[in-house]
């Protein structure tokens, strides 16, 4: 039998919930505007669920949706501890209603419980597949600056580029150690140890003109020289695919 082209699976995501405290849409709009203005990038295309527990059941649901979309959120659905009738009404209007397990996403419950609640809610809703990237709270990590070192890194020397990429114009000798929170570029031979993404940066990579390293490590995953046979003694770069290190030909 041919494999199905699609598959439904329950999965849990962290979604932002916007709690409405007033039924007056104008006040809501002003507050939202102020909030978004503080960090426009952060809120851009963020999936959002609107909690309507504390507002009038007669609120204009369509208007709420349009309002959050106006501020570039991705509207997902409504949630909150409301009556069965109201839920039914919302669904009839064509919106998703996400049930939370303990009827309300109480702010006092822990984040794991919240995640569970969301899972259950999503499952209860017959698998809504919401494909969203995990929202990053920090600005783009690619804003790393470069620390540039001209000359050899000798045996016994150690260089650390804190919160930076490390660029070495020269070779890294056996017994030397180069460490960066970002990427490492070696314009020369890499014979020592290179540790990229030291603070936990999955996308960090290590580039060198000649790979003869004692050890390479990215985000805690490491290789000793015996694992580098494929591109040994040639220009190569090392990166992470999921949790495995991969080496590729550089030029």
């Amino acid at each position: 039998m041919a494999e199905a082209s699609i598959e439904f699976k329950g999965s849990s995501f962290t979604l932002s919930v916007l709690h409405l405290k007033t039924s007056r849409l104008s006040g809501f709009r002003d507050d939202l505007k102020t909030k978004v203005a503080q960090a426009p990038d952060f809120f851009y295309l963020v999936p959002i669920v609107v909690d309507i527990e504390r507002v009038d059941s007669s609120i204009d649901y369509q208007a709420v949706k349009l309002l959050v979309e106006e501020f570039k959120f991705t509207f997902v659905g409504f949630t909150g501890n409301v009556s069965k009738e109201q839920r039914k009404f919302i669904r009839e209007l064509g919106f998703s209603f996400i049930n939370s397990a303990n009827s309300s996403v109480n702010s006092s419950i822990s984040s794991t419980e919240k995640a569970e609640a969301t899972t259950k809610a999503v499952k209860a809703n017959e698998a809504i597949v919401v494909k969203v990237e995990q929202t990053k709270i920090f600005p783009q990590v690619s804003l790393f600056t470069d620390k540039i070192h001209r000359g050899q890194i000798r045996s016994g020397q150690q260089i650390y580029a804190k919160d930076q990429n490390l660029v070495i114009i020269g070779s890294v000798s056996a017994g030397a150690e180069v460490i960066a929170d970002g990427n490492i570029h070696v314009y020369g031979s890499l014979r020592g140890r290179a540790i990229a993404g030291a603070k936990g940066h999955h996308q960090a990579q290590i580039y060198c003109q000649n790979l003869e390293a004692e050890l390479v490590s990215i985000n805690g995953n490491y290789w000793l020289s015996e694992s580098m046979e494929q591109h040994w003694n040639s220009p190569a770069y090392i990166h992470l695919s999921d949790t495995e290190l991969v080496s590729s030909k550089l030029i």
């Binding site: 050899q152 000798r154 045996s155 016994g156 020397q157 056996a174 017994g175």
Partner: peptide, 9 residues
Amino acid sequence: RDSDRILGM
């Protein structure tokens, strides 16, 4: 290797 270390020093 040792010369390399001394060069670093």
